[in-house]
Structure formats: C-alpha cells, structure tokens
Design a protein around this nucleic acid. Structure first.
Length: 824
RNA sequence: GCGAGAGUGGCGGAACUGGCAGACGCGCUGGACUUAGGAUCCAGUGGGGAAACUCGUGGGGGUUCGAAUCCCCCCUCUCGCACCA
C-alpha cells in the first residue's frame, strides 16, 4: 500500500486497537444487575475452540449478536452478552492420541487464539464472565446436574442397542450418527447392545413438544424438533399366541385396519422370537438374526429396496376375528420403536405391501377407496372401512371414515381388554456415556455392582492426569482410557467405606453445553450453580444466535436439562431460549463450502489486517440476510471500506483534523427528512435483524451528505450513533473527535420524528391498463379528481387514450392512478 | 420418498398487508482531477430498439384494474428426516 493510498483511508489500524484497549480498561461492557432496568440477554452459541481458529462464518453470527447487543445498550437495556468455550471434545483428544500432547494444553492455546480473534473483531463481550466447560469449577456443576438426574431416576444404566464406532472407540448418540456414519470423522457405526448410561429424555417428550409453543424459533427448527420427538397416537393391541401361552403386543396408529392384518412381523431382536420359532425354521431364523445383527445402519439403508425376512413357523391370533396369522421376523421392523412388533396390514401400509408382495402373503382391503392390488391405500381422509365386522356380527366399523373408525375400535378393544390407547415417540432415551478421556467424569462409584452417586461435597470429580489418551476398548468391552488408571478408579464408597470403583466413562460433549447459558449469569459462584436472584433477573435468553446444525442435538438436550432444573427449582422459566436465529453458511469466494482441502477458507485475521475490523463486520452483515447461505466476496469488503472512508471524510479533513466543513447550521428540510427516514429504517431493521438493508440505508444517507460543502453537525452526530453498533471503532473515534468525552456505547439512540419522515410532495405513478405511462408530482394527500385531471392532461398519458373510453379509475392515494380503458 | 425453505440484472442482493421491479453494494462504461491511478469525484449501467415503445422476477396456466408477491401444475437447487408401524 503506497503512502498516498493510505492518506485517503481512515486509519483503522491505529484506531481499532486503541478503542479495544479503551473498552477493556473502562469495563465498558461489564454487565451488572440493575434492579428495575430492563435487561436483554443476547447469547451466541459458544464455540468448540478448534485448532483452525475462527473463520468468517463464525464471525457472521457473532457480529450479528454484537450489533444487537450494542444497539440494545443504546436503547437503554442492561445487556448481558457473554462468551465462553465448549472445550471438551473429540478433536483435541484425537490430536492428543496422535501427538501425546495433553488436550488441556492444545485447548488452552486454541482458546487464546479464539479470544484474541474475537477481541480483534471488536465484539463487546463481558469477558469477566468467560467460562470454560473443562474448568473443574465449571464441570463440578455439570456433575451436580447429573447427580440430580440420577437421584430422580432420569439417569440410569441399561443394556440398550447403541451405536458403536470402532474407529473412534466409543459409542455415539443417535443424533451423532448421520447416514450410518459418525458425525465426527465420518466413520462407520455398528449397532450393538451394550450396558451404558442413558438419560431419560423420553420422560420429558410431551413437555418438550408442547413447550415449543412458547418459543419464537425458525419454523424449520421447530419442525425438526417436532419430528425428532415424533409423537404418534394410536393403540396397543394384544395378539394371543397360537399354541403357546402369552401375547404378542403391537403398536399401531391404524387400529381401524385391524381386520386387514394378514401376518405379523417381529424385529429380529424381539424376545418372543424363540418361543414362536418352529424346529424346522430354527436354522433359517438363527441365520437371519445373525445377519441382521451384523448389519450396520449403513448397510441396512443400502439394502432398503428389498424387504427381507423369514417365517418363524409360529402363529398369533387376531383378537378381532380369531384368524391365525403367520409370524415373521424382518429387519424393517425396529426393536427400538413401539413394541418391536407389528401387525402387518399390507393393504394399507406401503412397507407391509412391499413385504407381502416379496413373500407372497395375502393382501386384504379393509378401507375402500384405492386399489390395493396396485399399491397400499393409506389415505386417512378419504375412504371408509369395509370387511371389518367380527364373525359373530357383534361389532363392526364398516362404513365409517378412519377417524371415527379408530375411535370406535379402540373403545371396543379397551372394553374387551384386548388393547388400549397408546402414545409412542420416535425420541429415544439419550445415550450419555462415552469411552473417552477428554470429558466430564461421572460423579458415580460402583459398589457391589450398584451405581452410587457421590455426595455433593466431593464434587468436582476431577479428571485424572495421564499421558495415554487412546481408547483401547472393544465392542465387547468398551473402555474409557480412565479405566486403566487404577489409582483413580479404585476408591472407597464414601457412605460405607467399602471398596468401590469409579465410573470410568465420561460424559458426551453436549453435557457442558446443556446449561452454560446459566453459568454466565453467575460464573464463579462456588456455592451454587447460579444465584436465584441473578437467574430471575437475566433469564430467559432473549436472543440466541447460532448454527442450524444444532437444531436438534444441542437445542433439544439443553431444553431437557432446563426443564429438569425448572422442576427442581433452579431456574424460573420453562424454556431457556425465547428467540432463536440461525446464521446462514458463508461460502467461499468460489461459491462452494469453505474447506481447508479446497483452499477457499477466509481467515478473519487476514481480512481484518487488510480492511479493518469495522469493514469486516459491516461486510459480514451487508452480504445478505443473516439466515441466508451466501458467498464471500473480497471485492465487497473493498466496497465497504470505501463507504467507511466516505463517512470518515465527512468529518475529518486531509490533515486528520475535524473537518472545517462542519457547521452549526440548521439542516435543510430535505436533509432533515432523509435523516429521520434513516433513523426509522435503521431502527426498524435492527429490531427485525435486517442488517443488510439497514446498512444500505446508511449508505444512501452518506451518499446524500457527501456533496455538501457545509455539513451541519445535526446531520452527522446521529449518523455516527446509527453507525456505532455496526462499526463501533470508527464511530467511537468520530464521536470523540466531535467533542464527546464519554464512549458512545451507552449514548442514547437517535429517535425519529414521524412528522419529519414524510415528504409533503409525493410521486404518483399513472398507469393506463396497468402499464406505467407517467409519474407525476403532487402535494401529499391529493384526491383522485386532482390527480386524474392532471394525468388526463399529460401528453404521455393522453396519447394512450385516443380511440378508447376511460372506464374505472383506480386511485391509491399518494401512490398510483390506474386508468382502465376500453375501445370506443 | 416425506417435510421445510428458496429460484429476481454479469454478481451479492432490495421491493411494507398485491400498487413505479432491480434500493444498496460489487463489476462494467464514459468523463473530471492527475506524472501516474488498482485513490478520489461526477455521470451512466436489466434485455431489445435511433426513438416511440416493447419484453422482462425458474417454466406453464389462472385470479385481479394491477402479480416477484395470491391460487393450480411442472422444473431446479439447498437443508432436514429417512423402513418410526
């Protein structure tokens, strides 16, 4: 950069660090509870501090929340805007496995980088509230919450089918498995039954579903949570076994199709398989079960075109008509949902239809309206029940539509003791243990094969030191690296004093992020998770900004913990996050996803170095709507620096002094109007998080002021304030040069005068048959007659009327006149 | 396959409850100031046309005085879910 170029640029490299130091020294962004002052809790999803540092995608969400925070401060709110680190997790640990360097060391380094980058971007966090999930002072309370869950029976050990990832040497939650592979690393995952810690999130399924009504979230996220919980209402029906004592219980959402069941299917893992297997089938069944057990989820998916299964040889009896139904096993029926068994109604279920076709099983129509020889008829709205009368004629739903039929037959089943109403959820209990080193230890010891919670006074259970981080467990014996540390594992039961073994699994990464927003309220309280008065003051989070990738995982888990904390009186609100916004993805300059392998990653350090933090912040917001996916364009950042240069030159002359063009003049009415329009637009857009259009309006305003030789302060001071949330460094600098001693961080946001916003003349569009022919100036409020008479006299309008009769005149005051004409 | 969202200039994107399509920025063109311009300032910039005009918001229908906006059908893209009985 040549010296001459530098002259026309505002000196961001000098200004920005100076103001960052000022804010830090003066504690400008410290948040302190002030009774009576309205609060605003503006939260970012705190990051996992990876080795790569921040990229401009992170910065988009952080900038947005920072702008809102700064704006709200100027609107008189007491703003809480904190930041911390979700620092347990796989990458640091995998790095440790590879290099032997303790994850605590790399984590600390990465955090230092993140913090430096955030400060450099001018983010107005209250750094006094910084938290770190790996800090024993923090995870002590993560463990404390676990104890509460354990005490309430919401944490338990069970033999459950889990997702075992051999490559990572750990189990994973359903939510961490994407298309049969681990979300982290993309390694293959297999299903295995294992004894593991599980959290009973299903006990909260209804509340998690219902309370979605209370929050203002993106519809897509709302919908995803709803689908993930997957509540469905139906009935459980008991089918007596033929020749064997016992019942086969199934769940169905379509009890109205009970008369159409032609066979039954069990999941391969179902406990009744053995009882129902005929000697002749034993070998085939065993082979099928073994094959199914070996299949990973990935393989199951690849094979989903063809429905496989084996007949067991046994039968069950349909309780409505006494028919003997053959019982099969097939892996399209899942052990984890419902009862792990279904009644197959091929006429009215697409999966059963495909299976029946493949295995030559009968298909029976019991809802008229489709053609069950061609495909399953599953329409719930249309069609009436047929062939649905008991053999003795005592009960029938024939002729009824589905809704009515379902109610009737369910009542009948209940009365007869053959079934009952039932609700099922897709949501499963949350597999909570990981066979890893770098996570929170459980506050649990095992005594005589029984899990016991440690007393609160013994918290935190600190993560023991080691230099061997590699999990060496197998699917038969999944073991955390902690299991090898016998000095740590072998302990005494604090109650009985008898020998005990510590639980050696660790918690998953989600644990720490389930409640971090509460610790920010009272980050170093040694007595409590959070002081109740502080909790009441700050909660709930008013605005929560973070990536859509957490739509299910983090946001569902955190809501679950929050509700438990609500139940035990730790928090006062049923939901933690009121308004939620997901920032969109920032793509590389080439329009593809930023990735190190492609080499299109934009590092904020580089762009801040070249253009300054203010320019980067402004550009991040100017690219487009916050939620949209949009490509980075360095040229666009240059455009923004030109804008900031123009703002600078409005107030500062070539020698760097306050410009002599500034005057105490009253602004012209036109300029005053643009000012008030700008205040209104920027204010409304900030309230609606429409940062891009707010910036566009600021540009328009600056463009209008630029040609002025004499520039009234009354036009410029509000501009500086309006710009401040977006570009705080340049704004602070200009504000100071304008003679203000105090930082503008808490200055009063400009107000607009509605009377000054509207112009007294308006442009009215004149259309003929909907086509624009002229635009005319009128005083505001001109009536239809006035507008029409001028319009009809206008040559540009008149020449389109020749040979036609003017019929209807549509007049939208101050906007438009449309003349509807027909041939004469 | 199911669910949600989105398709507007060369590019990123504007457009309130239907009312002047393309704000603002990038890029581009021309000019001014300059030894110089990758600085700055001024003017222009959807396509076609000399102009009058005309065509234009993924494609095709429709409603309306009037549609980017509302309705129907189709195409494309993005993101979820994926045998949940």
């Amino acid at each position: 950069m040549s010296p001459l170029q530098t002259m026309s640029r505002y000196p961001f490299a000098e200004i920005e660090p100076r103001w960052q130091a000022y804010w830090e020294e003066h504690g400008t962004f410290r948040a302190v509870e002030v009774p009576g002052q309205p609060k605003f809790y503006c939260l970012d999803m705190f990051p996992y501090p990876s080795g790569a540092g921040l990229h401009v995608g992170h910065l988009e969400g952080y900038t947005a929340s920072d702008i809102v925070s700064r704006y709200k401060r100027m609107r008189g709110f007491n703003v809480l805007h904190p930041m911390g680190w979700d620092a347990f997790g796989l990458p640091a640990e995998q790095y440790a496995v590879k290099t032997g360097i303790h994850p605590a060391i790399t984590t600390a380094e990465n955090i230092a980088t993140f913090r430096r980058q955030m400060k450099r971007a001018g983010l107005s966090y209250d750094w006094a509230r910084e938290i770190n999930t790996t800090d024993p002072g923090y995870y002590r309370w993560t463990q404390w919450i676990f104890l509460k869950l354990f005490e309430r029976g919401l944490a338990y050990v069970a033999e459950v089918p889990v997702n075992w990832c051999p490559e990572l040497g750990t189990v994973l939650a359903n939510e961490e498995v994407v298309e049969g592979r681990s979300e982290v690393g993309g390694f293959e995952v297999v299903r295995r039954p294992m004894r593991q810690w599980v959290l009973k999130i299903t006990a909260y399924a209804d509340r998690l579903l219902e309370d979605l009504e209370r929050v203002d979230w993106p519809a897509s996220t709302w919908e995803m949570q709803k689908n993930w919980i997957g509540r469905s209402i139906g009935a459980e029906v008991d089918f007596p076994l033929d020749g064997v004592n016992g019942n086969l219980r199934v769940f169905t959402t379509r009890p109205d199709t009970l008369f159409g069941a032609t066979y039954m299917v069990l999941a391969p893992e179902h406990p009744l398989v053995d009882a129902l297997t005929a000697p002749a089938q034993r070998e085939a069944v065993a082979a099928y079960r073994e094959a199914a057990a070996r299949k990973s989820d990935l393989q199951r998916q690849e094979l989903d075109k063809e429905k496989t299964g084996v007949f067991l040889g046994g039968h069950a009896v349909n309780p409505v008509n006494g028919e003997r139904l053959p019982v099969w096993i097939a892996d399209y029926v899942l052990m984890g949902y419902g009862t792990g068994a279904i009644m197959a109604v091929p006429g009215h279920d697409a999966r059963d239809w495909a299976f029946a076709r493949a295995h030559h099983l009968p298909i029976r129509e019991v809802v008229a309206g489709g053609d069950v020889t061609r495909e399953a008829f599953v329409d719930l709205e249309h069609g009436v029940a047929v062939h649905s009368t008991t053999p003795d004629g005592a009960f029938s739903i024939d002729g009824l539509e589905a809704a009515e039929a379902i109610a009737r037959i369910t009542d009948w089943l209940e009365a007869a003791g053959k079934g009952r109403r039932a609700v099922n959820y897709k949501l499963r209990d949350w597999l909570f243990a990981r066979q890893r080193y770098w996570g929170e230890p459980f506050p649990i010891v095992w005594v005589d094969g029984e899990a016991r919670g440690l007393p609160e006074e013994q918290l935190p259970v600190k993560l023991p030191e080691t230099d061997r981080f590699k999990p060496e467990g197998t699917s038969e014996d999944p073991q955390s690296p902690l299991a090898r540390l016998s000095d740590w594992v072998e302990t005494l039961d604090p109650v009985s004093g008898r020998p005990a073994r510590r639980e050696s699994n660790t918690m998953p990464q989600w644990a720490g992020s389930c409640w971090y927003y509460l610790r920010f309220l009272d980050p170093s309280n040694p007595e409590r998770l959070v002081d109740p008065a502080r909790e009441k003051y700050w909660m709930p989070v008013d605005l929560y900004i973070g990536g859509a990738e957490h739509a299910v995982l983090h946001l569902l888990y955190a809501r679950f913990w929050h509700k438990v904390l609500f139940d035990i009186g730790v928090v006062s609100t049923p939901e933690p996050f009121m308004k939620l916004v997901h920032q969109g993805t920032v793509l590389g300059e080439d329009g593809t996803k930023m990735a190190k392998s492609v080499g299109n990653v934009v590092n904020p350090d580089d762009v801040i170095e070249r253009f300054g933090a203010d320019a980067v912040r402004l550009y991040e917001m100017f690219m487009g709507p916050l939620e949209a996916t949009k490509p980075w364009n360095t040229r666009g950042v240059e455009g923004i620096t030109r804008f900031l240069d123009r703002v600078w030159r409005l107030l500062v002359d070539e020698e760097g002094r306050l410009s002599g063009a500034l005057t105490g003049d009253d602004p012209s009415p036109d300029h005053l109007r643009t000012l008030h329009q700008t205040i209104r637009k920027v204010t409304e857009d900030l309230d609606g998080l429409r940062f891009n259009t707010a910036i566009a309006q600021l540009m328009t305003y600056v463009n209008e002021l630029t040609p002025l030789k004499r520039r009234p302060r009354a036009l410029l001071e509000p501009l500086v304030l309006l710009l401040a949330p977006f570009a705080p460094h340049i704004a602070e600098e200009l504000w100071q040069r304008l003679g203000h001693a105090e930082s503008l961080a808490h200055a009063t946001w400009p107000a607009w005068d509605p009377a000054l916003v509207e112009a007294d003349t308006v442009t009215v569009a004149v259309q003929v048959n909907g086509k624009l022919r002229a635009t005319l100036e009128f005083p505001r409020g001109a009536d239809a007659e006035t507008v029409a008479s001028v319009a009809l006299a206008d040559e540009r309008v008149r020449r389109h009327l020749e040979g036609f009769v003017v019929g209807k005149r549509i007049h939208v005051p101050d906007k438009l006149l449309n003349l509807v004409i027909t041939p004469r």
